[in-house]
Amino acid sequence: MTGGREHSLMRAAVLGVPWLWLSAFILLPFSIVVAISLSVATDAQPPYVFGPVLDNYRLIVEDTLYLAALGNAIRIAATSSVVCLFIGYPMAYAIARAQPRWRGPLLALVILPFWTSFLIRIYAWMTLLRPTGLINQVLIDLGIIDAPLQLMNNAFAVHLGIIYAYLPFMILPLYASIERLDPSLLEAAADLGSRPWRRFLSVTLPLTLPGIVAGTLLVFVPAVGEFVIPELLGGPDTPMIGRLLWTEFFNNRDWPVAASIAVALTALLVVPVAILQHMLAPREEAREVNP
């Protein structure tokens, strides 16, 4: 739309307010994190003195603790994403192929847990997995085991918690891409002699790939930095990078190391994901109407 001063004023406001907010509460904080990651920890208040030094980065690269925690987090997040995909794909497919009037309610049932508390859903598993929890009790009552199994505070429980908490994030984008799939494409493939499995592999799967990528990213990315799940369900043998950052900050009061973990994690995780998403995003036709 072309037009006068009023239009320019409005444009300035619509752009200006978010710019201010984003600068103050995202750009500035992250710049401060970068600055602190280059600082030296002290006992003063606040507990750092600006360097700039690269000691903190040297530490997190040289001390195997950090790399191990990062590797472990990536491994756990990747395994959980794949399991989510295998559970989520058939569910999303079934919902997308259900009668239209059932799709809404079925989808709502997937989303509903998301609206209840995340903490409480993790707590629910704690009550089930504990040595005196329901699963162990039932197994003992049935005489299958004599002593309680160690189901909690290990890698298994962390996987389970992540899969449970993030499954809806996998199903939603998968559903969206499967639902969009034109059924006549499958009919055409069938008409050309393709059998059901072959049809799935050669038509459905490639065409729903954007949903698969989106769902996997939605599970993988937050899972890598997850803190609550490893804290509540994990144990000493499941170090994860998000929990380590927390420990460095709150328990060791080492702000510079915590900040350098944040910067390193951003560089390793957020930047590649952003690039990947940018590449996968459909090209929008951002025709500038107002020159």
């Binding site: 752009l15 995202i26 904080p29 994190v33 990315v221 890598v224 930095g225 915590a258 952003a274 998403q277």
Partner: peptide
């Protein structure tokens, strides 16, 4: 603009929390 806006969507919560706290302290 789009990148800053989307940052909290993909940033782990521990990083968002840490950076906001450090900003408030500074």
């Amino acid at each position: 603009f789009a990148g800053l806006l989307a940052a909290p969507l993909i940033m782990p919560e521990v990083i968002t929390g840490l950076s906001l706290l450090l900003m408030f302290v500074s």
